[in-house]
Design a protein around this nucleic acid. Structure first.
Lengths: 133, 133
DNA sequence: CTATGTGCAAACAGTTTGCAGTTAT
DNA sequence: ATAACTGCAAACTGTTTGCACATAG
């Protein structure tokens, strides 16, 4: 465990979900020479070791978090807001997919996409306005 | 509707889910001068018009399909295999998320990640071998 | 003639790779 | 001295942007 690796792990722990870029920026606050290449390599390594996991929240860069920090993400594709829910919220679906298709769902790896409450409400309001202006 | 746009739409229809690159390659078979920039712009346009939709199947480029072609995707993060299931398989989950979080799920926009039957079975077999070699 | 569409080159973000220098063992 | 780790530069994929030219209404 080199100093760089410790710093990367610390950064992931402190930041919650963070992109490699964000981790790098954080690490560079205390060790400016650390290169983004090292961050990528270290994140890969830590993931192989099972210490961190990455999640795809959407189009952009993935985010890394410590492995304890496991939940399903709901991302709003209007405003980008990210909510977290308990992983067991998808247990029924996972069981059904396994039964019907032999598919073993990894619910935490990819976020669910949709509209958050606020954006859904706003869309409804705008729709109502068009109908009766 | 310019010739380029028609070609892009045709390519999307014929290819099923295709990345912008793949669409471009297909279009260039009949119109070699068409640029990938035009493909991107046209796909955006067709999506605004509601004619096509894109889905994120994983890390790489998104795939485009005609809007009729709506289903949920199951991608295996071991072998990359993509299965399609009916969109209503997630209706219960969608209802639950809406009730509990006001979140309106768009089940078709992002694929569900996991292990397909073959890869799951193979992983099980390897695990058994380690225990009793 | 004005708006729209196109192609090209260049930029961009995110990520990976090759290589040389460094450090630990 | 051998292996592992790091930093840097360069490549790479996927995507967007600015600009000049062409076309159509």
């Amino acid at each position: 465990m080199t100093p760089q690796r410790q710093l990367v792990l610390d950064a992931v722990s402190e930041l919650g979900h963070a992109t490699p870029e964000a981790v790098c920026t954080r690490v560079q606050e205390t060790a400016p020479a650390v290169n983004i290449t090292t961050v990528y390599r270290t994140l890969d390594l830590l993931e192989q070791l099972g210490v961190v996991k990455h999640t795809h929240l959407g189009h952009g860069a993935p985010t890394y978090a410590t492995s304890e920090h496991e939940h399903v993400h709901l991302v709003c594709h209007h405003c980008g807001r990210v909510d977290e829910i308990e992983a067991d919220a998808l247990d029924d679906l996972a069981a059904a997919l396994r039964r019907s298709h032999g598919f073993r769902l990894d619910a935490t790896h990819v976020a669910l996409s949709g509209a958050c409450r606020d954006c859904a409400d706003r869309a409804d309001a705008e729709l109502a306005e068009e109908v009766a202006p």
